[in-house]
């Protein structure tokens, strides 16, 4: 589903990704682990299409199509979804208004009919309930005054409603207590599907106890330096990233 070949990326003249190769198959949950500064978040932003990064070489193929020239919204319409490490607050835009706008924008891009209001409400209610998001939260400005855990649940709610085919979770566990982590992980697990792939970016192994990956990749110095099964996460938890930092240097 996702194939990244020799991706080289700079920001403000500083090389962040250094010939990265990665393949994630449909139905697969792939974890990327690595020390701080290894380029994990940059990878997620570059896949989603953030402008300030300069791609010097390589390609990102989604279902065989290179998405590097596409705008972020065009990538979203093709099923790419990034759950942000730090979801942004948008005062003045109610969560409901926002959800309806993004769902209909994607439907429009795929030439599907807009959702009727009752259908929209039904879907939001059902998805919100699973994530323990109450109606009051949905009426507030998007993420305004939400706790860290509430913001992350709101990201997963959007993911559930948009039904993307390729989901990137960027440090979704950061700032979450164990209860919130379980809710978020459960939300993700219910979306696991043979037609859908996940890229779970995390610094700690903790999240991977709850979202159990099929593959684990270790990233250092802007490249994937080691790949393995879920046991690799446990090994990293025990040994730390010190070896990889040295290898990178």
């Amino acid at each position: 589903m996702l194939q990244i070949n020799n991706l080289v990326v700079e920001i403000e003249g500083k090389r962040i990704l250094n010939g990265l190769d990665l393949t994630v198959k449909a139905g697969e949950v792939a974890a990327i682990m690595g020390p701080n500064g290894s380029g994990k978040s940059t990878l997620s932003y570059v896949i989603a299409g953030k402008e300030e990064y300069e791609v010097l070489d390589g390609e990102i193929l989604v279902d065989g199509e290179n998405i590097l020239e596409l705008e972020p919204n065009e990538r979203a319409a093709r099923g790419v979804f990034l759950a942000f490490q730090y979801p942004l607050e948008i005062p003045g835009v109610s969560t409901m208004t926002f959800l309806k706008a993004i769902m209909n924008a994607q439907r429009k891009a795929r030439e599907e009919a807009e959702l009727t209001t009752p259908e929209f409400m039904k879907r939001v209610r059902a998805a919100a309930e699973k994530l323990h998001i109450d109606q009051e939260m949905l009426r507030r400005g998007l993420n305004v005054g939400f706790s860290g855990g509430e913001k992350k649940r709101m990201e997963i709610l959007q993911m559930a409603l948009l039904e993307p085919r390729f989901c990137i979770l960027d440090e979704t566990d950061s700032g979450l207590d164990i209860d919130a982590l379980k809710i978020v992980a459960e939300g993700v697990n219910t979306l696991r599907d043979p037609a859908r792939a996940f890229l779970v970016i995390t610094h700690y192994q903790r999240l991977l106890n709850h979202i159990v990956p099929d593959t684990v990749h270790v990233m250092a110095n802007g490249r994937i330096v080691r790949s393995g099964g879920k046991e690799l996460a446990l090994e990293l938890e025990a040994s730390g990233y010190a070896d990889y930092r040295e290898q990178a240097a």
Binding site: A48, G49, K50, E51, E71, P72, N73, R75, A76, A77, L82, F84, P87, L88, I90, P91, G92, V93, F98, A101, I102, A105, Q106, A109, G141, Q158, L162
Partner: peptide, 23 residues
């Protein structure tokens, strides 16, 4: 950053800008 957040969710740039101006 807000514009990126909105466009990454699927809103075309013009719509994302309009939403932020309205807000």
């Amino acid at each position: 950053d807000l514009l990126f957040y909105l466009t990454a969710r699927g809103l075309p740039r013009a719509m994302a800008e309009a939403l932020l101006v309205q807000a």
